[in-house]
């Protein structure tokens, strides 16, 4: 009988196809995550009472805590309330995906003939253990932050963060009063252009951080299970539960930071010498 390999791949394995669209196990897990969140949301909606029950109380405490954490980053309750729905959705989506990836249900799957013989392909692989999932979230976070910035401070100010035409214009208006502006303005303009690269770096860092952590966790669990089955992976399983929670939290907080930066007016910030949101995060 041919040996079945339990090879861990860097990419999500295809489970079935819809025409030209390949459905991967990570996508299936994401659908499960969506279904779980939808069911929980509907269950919560049906149980909402003015005098809260146990489930509602837990949710209220969690949401109040998350909102106060959000406040520590934004320093503004109104801004927090605007960003919060997006951040908490990202948090739950990533959390459920992370935890689904480490459930024992990953033992269910199909056996396919691959390049190196028969290979086991699990039906469930965390949506965040596939770079496509994390890239999607990262793009939405960065794009969302910029769109939020447009709605908060306006299109012109958001555009000037990247292509700082305003500072170039100041060369002509402020040259007599501040001769140094002829050096400072091109540098500021160039810094703005670097910000564009920074936005892509944000996408890369967000997506690869989450993917790397979750994928490494899954690799760790499979390796431990392959070395000494059943008993040894259990502590690592708990560790991965914690890692899943922490990664979801990190992604969400970073999203709040990006949204806060997007909603802040750079010009006012520099004039008012306000503490940037990244520094605020460092103090959290």
């Amino acid at each position: 009988m041919e040996k079945i390999s339990h090879e861990i791949t860097l990419f999500a394995e295809p489970v079935f196809h819809f025409g030209s669209f390949t459905v991967t196990n990570a996508l299936v897990t994401s659908w499960f995550a969506v279904a779980i969140i939808v069911v929980l949301a509907l269950a919560l909606r049906s149980k909402l009472r003015e005098v809260p029950g146990k489930i509602q109380s837990v949710f209220e405490v969690a949401i109040e805590g998350a909102l106060s954490l959000c406040d520590q980053v934004t320093n503004d309750r109104k801004l927090s309330l605007k960003i919060f729905p997006f951040a908490i959705s990202v948090f739950f989506f990533i959390l459920v995906n992370n935890w689904l990836g480490i459930t024992p249900l990953g033992g269910f799957g199909i056996i396919e003939k691959g390049e190196h013989g028969l290979a086991f392909i699990p039906y469930l692989r965390s949506g965040t253990a596939d770079i496509n999932g994390t890239i999607a979230l990262a793009i939405m976070a960065v794009l969302g932050a910029n769109i939020f910035g447009v709605f908060s401070v306006g299109l012109w100010k958001t555009f000037n963060k990247y292509v700082n035409l305003k500072v170039l214009g100041e060369i002509f208006t402020k040259l007599r009063r501040e001769p140094t502006i002829i050096i400072v303005a091109p540098i500021t303009f160039f810094v703005g252009l670097i910000e564009i690269v920074g936005e892509f770096a944000k996408i890369a860092s967000l997506s690869f951080r989450l993917f790397g952590n979750v994928f490494a966790g899954e690799v760790l669990l499979v390796s431990m299970a392959a070395l000494v089955a059943y008993a040894v992976p259990i502590p690592f399983l708990f560790l991965e539960i914690l890692v899943g929670l922490i990664q979801a939290l990190i992604f969400s907080i970073l999203l709040v930071v990006y949204f806060t930066i997007g909603a802040s007016d750079h010009a006012e910030e520099h004039e008012g010498h306000e503490e940037p949101a990244e520094h605020k995060l460092a103090s959290v």
Binding site: S30, V34, I37, A41, L44, S89, F92, F93, G127, G133
Partner: peptide, 20 residues
């Protein structure tokens, strides 16, 4: 798949926002 995952997240966001 990126779009599909984005749609998944969109569904989560919409449902969570409207119902919870």
């Amino acid at each position: 798949i990126i779009i599909a995952q984005a749609v998944n997240f969109g569904v989560v966001f919409t449902v969570l926002y409207i119902f919870a």
